[in-house]
């Protein structure tokens, strides 16, 4: 049991059940996305009201956790990133340009208005050193792991 390199302490305290819990969460997530997908391609009305949330990718390697969100057409100053406890909060507003409001609209598929997304962070992330960059409409957040979390790899010695 102790030889299994596990991601963090809290999860390993869940005992043998935690891989099952992880699997169940994964199935739930796939089910959710499958149910939502047919509706995801619907055209949203552009009345600007209502909140939307951007889709995110969260990846992890030995050194850091990376969060990527596609936020096209949003000025970097309108994006707010904050960390509360172990939750990363992305919020902001996609402003509707004046011409969208006043001119004849043939087709409208993009969503305007305020957005908000809360992303749970794994343990062992140094939330003081978050690096946020916005390039070509993609927001990339790099959250380095704490030295303790980064070096939690157990070497198996051959005797």
């Amino acid at each position: 049991m102790n030889l299994i390199p596990w991601r963090n302490k809290r999860e390993s305290e869940g005992g043998e059940l935690s891989p099952m819990v992880a699997l169940r969460n994964e199935v739930d997530r796939l089910f959710d996305s499958f149910v939502r997908e047919p509706f995801g391609s619907l055209e949203w009305p552009s009345w600007g009201g209502g909140q939307w949330s951007p889709a995110v990718d969260v990846t992890e390697n030995d050194k850091e956790v990376t969060v990527c969100a596609e936020l096209p057409g949003i000025e970097p100053k309108d994006i707010e990133v904050s960390v509360v406890g172990n939750q990363l909060i992305l919020s902001g507003e996609k402003k509707e340009s004046t011409e969208t409001k006043s001119k004849g609209v043939y087709q409208s598929e993009t969503r305007y208005g305020s957005f908000r997304r809360t992303i749970p962070l794994p343990d062992g992330v140094d939330t003081e050193k978050v690096d946020a960059r916005y390039t070509n409409g993609v927001l990339t957040l790099r959250l380095p792991k704490t030295p303790q979390a980064a070096s939690k790899r157990i070497e198996v010695k051959v005797t």
Binding site: R29, S33, R36, G40, S41, Q51, S53, A55, R111, R117
Partner: peptide, 11 residues
């Protein structure tokens, strides 16, 4: 998934 309004892009 904290919202049903998560934006996705179609293939």
């Amino acid at each position: 998934m904290d919202s049903e309004n998560t934006i996705t892009k179609p293939a």
